[in-house]
Amino acid sequence: MSLTHFAALLPLDTLGHYLHWHFIQISVANFVVIVLMVFTFIAAIFAPFPGRRRRKENQ
């Protein structure tokens, strides 16, 4: 399968989609990246880190 088959999965030759809210205008792609960063940040704070309990017990 050539790469052109994968390219057909996402329409890259159309106009981008934008979100409007009062004076704020942002592309959907940028908005998705920001949401993912916020999600990653929150997950990084609360997700258990491997071996953390073992280290605490050793101290």
Partner: peptide, 11 residues
């Protein structure tokens, strides 16, 4: 230190 064992320190 122990407090470094958190995902927030990985970035």
């Amino acid at each position: 230190p122990t407090y470094v064992s958190s995902w927030i320190y990985v970035f």
